Computed example of a mutant assay.
Amino acid sequence: MKKIVLSSLFVAAVLGVHAQSSVTLHVNDVADGTAITAEIGCTFQDEKPIAEAVLKNGQAVFNLPVTEPRMIDFRVKGNDGRLLHMMTTKGENVSAYVTAKRIVSQGVEYINGNEEKQQVFDSPTHAEYMIKIGAFKSYLNLYNKAYHDAFKSVNDQINKAYEAKDTATVKALQQSAEYQQMVKFDSEFFKLLHEEYPKRFAANRETFWSPLMQLDTYTYFTPENRAGYDELSDAAKNSFYGKCLKEQVYPKGFMGQAYSEFDVLDQNGKKTPSRKLIKGKKYMLIDFWASWCRPCRAEIPNLKQVYADYAAKGLQIISVSLDRSDAAWKKALKEEQLPWPNGIDKSGIANAYKVQTIPAMFLVDVATGKIVGENLRGESLRNKLAELLK
């Protein structure tokens, strides 16, 4: 009996090992002691880490609980940058090498991986990804960078003329041979992109690869992208990434539905239930945004104006940040000085509302608890509030 028990335990241990992917991540230019996270990529959801490891001697070792092929995004914990975008599956023992590349935008540092220096070994899944689309994406990035670098001078001159509102200079530059050549290269680039991607999607429509590739390629989806989903096989549609793609091309509407309650986690770490913040109010506007999102920041003056016009009449705005970095979020709060409650999403609030792109806004009738407006911005938001709060 003891032999049988020991044998069963051994089998369970072996199965446990093979039901995960072991990844040793070698990172240059990031200090030892830094925490690195791993999360599922290409879902268009606010994914939480599935594993975390601390760099020691330039290495971070992960045991990823994946039972089938998944895209994994590795990041410095709390940073919006991405060190590595890599496919793996159960049973693989992967070694990956990456060199950090830092970019500062609006005073915030993003720690990315230098694609030109990254290497992934012993992952047949990642190798297949590179063959199907990864290498082509890298080629497009190099192509794009090359022609932008080649025409940097004329671009800088035009931008400078635009800023100075010097229309005569802008017109003269646009008629130059250099500018015309740039337009030609730009046109050829987008022609290549729009022709090649659909071919690759169609060639893999029998498996999960096609929906994964579509999710990996596009930053947002419109009804025009439904054809790419509709042509998939049933197996591809029912795959993990097939279901993720369906949510993007056939998004669930929330009009008339009860809003999902949530806690607002403020910059001091205090949680306040949303229902408490809207007590005595008539309407609540839930605003999903992030410090790095330029359209979100551009919308803030409009939000401040509608808040000034309608707060006394029963409007409450609650802003929910999708920043990974607390520092970046708090810096933006200091700059924007938002006069309404705001918090950061640490519990999947955006997932409950199927947020695809930001800014995303939902208007709630407090009396009924139902959503009466989706993705209202600018004039459409002002008109809706004028109708409701006469």
Rank of each mutant, 00 (worst) to 15 (best):
I344N: 01
Y97W: 15
F10P: 06
N63S: 11
E109T: 12
R275I: 15
E336G: 02
Q119N: 14
G378R: 12
P223V: 12
A350F: 02
R82I: 14
A35W: 09
D73Q: 13
K132F: 08
V66D: 00
V98I: 11
K281D: 15
V104A: 10
P124N: 13
V355I: 07
V355Q: 00
W329D: 02
T219H: 12
N112E: 01
A12C: 14
D80A: 15
P211R: 02
E196K: 10
G33I: 02
V183P: 02
L84A: 09
N141E: 15
Y241W: 08
V54S: 13
A367W: 08
D287I: 10
I300P: 04
R226W: 04
A38G: 12
M213Q: 03
Q119K: 14
E261F: 04
P341V: 04
A168I: 09
L333Y: 02
Q267S: 14
I50H: 02
E92P: 08
S260T: 11
V108C: 01
Y229P: 04
E336T: 03
Q157L: 00
I131R: 13
T169D: 10
S21N: 05
P211Q: 01
K2M: 13
Q59M: 15
K252C: 13
G314A: 10
Q119M: 15
M1H: 03
K304T: 10
D186V: 02
Y283A: 03
F121V: 13
G58I: 01
G256D: 01
A177G: 09
E188P: 07
E387Y: 15
L193S: 15
D216K: 06
A172G: 05
T24M: 14
I4Q: 14
A150V: 12
A227F: 08
V170A: 12
Y283I: 08
A60K: 05
Q20M: 03
G253W: 07
Q119D: 12
N79I: 13
K90N: 14
Y241F: 08
K282H: 02
Y97N: 14
